[in-house]
Write a protein that binds this DNA or RNA. Sequence first.
DNA 1: TTTCGTGCAAAACCTTTGCAAAGTG
DNA 2: CACTTTGCAAAGGTTTTGCACGAAA
Lengths: 151, 151
Amino acid sequence: MPDDHSHCGHDCPDHPIDGALEILRAEGLRVTEPRKAMLTILAREHGPFSADELHKRMGKAGCDVVTIYRSLQAMEEVGVLRRCDFGDGVYRYEFNHGEHHHHHVICRVCRSVETLDVCVADSLERMARQKGYQKVTHTLEVFGVCPKCAE
Amino acid sequence: MPDDHSHCGHDCPDHPIDGALEILRAEGLRVTEPRKAMLTILAREHGPFSADELHKRMGKAGCDVVTIYRSLQAMEEVGVLRRCDFGDGVYRYEFNHGEHHHHHVICRVCRSVETLDVCVADSLERMARQKGYQKVTHTLEVFGVCPKCAE
DNA sequence: TTTCGTGCAAAACCTTTGCAAAGTG
DNA sequence: CACTTTGCAAAGGTTTTGCACGAAA
């Protein structure tokens, strides 16, 4: 169950993208075709995806990759997206589901991604806050060699 | 106590660099001046440092940055160093103290680094192994705005 | 209409690669 | 001596920036 929207089709009325668009408006960001297309892909295919991967998936709704970079950054800043770092020099983005947040296991060989639906870093965040840090966040990714690649 | 070598000077006989050099030899890597210089800096100042930061710190013992990149990679592969990823597009390295491993709090403003001497990701690694992954590792870094930058 | 987003081209950045020369064991 | 490592130069790949044009509220 890496995708909690599996109960609905692509046109599910309360699809997360609507909430995301509202946040954009509330934050003074504009709702544009490229942004809607990007969010739709991220909502449907879950990701996380890099700018380049998104670009390739946006067939006719395609826009320049630069626009994707800029929009991903803008949408991350207002909390609509979350940036993942798999340590290969490429940033990937996925929907930010707020507190209900999870992590990934990345296969070092085939680069496949599986979701681990738990987070154990609360105690670390708490420690950081006790040391006086504000706006504390964290990144946590697990790496390994997946069963298929291990034979 | 972010640095557990604070009890000794730079020439402490059982300084970690000696053990590191032995590992290099045992793995068939050569012990060269640039490598010794890099390890000395990492042992003394703890790090983690990027290739560029190391390069700047290696005054007269300086070598090409490319050599640093290659050596860091080689020494990471044999387990002497550990690579950290602070999500800013730059890789940093520090000594690998084996199982006794820790994490960092990175200030998003001034980029200062503090050590959190705990690791809580064992349960996640276990989950990954149960899913059939092998050679499981993880990265975990905490970000925030440090007290000095928060005013 | 005013402000923000986009496209295109070019730059910035960090990291990697190729090859001949030098160093290590 | 055989093999690894280094330096230099150049390439690679991802992400960012500048600026004029176009689109959203």
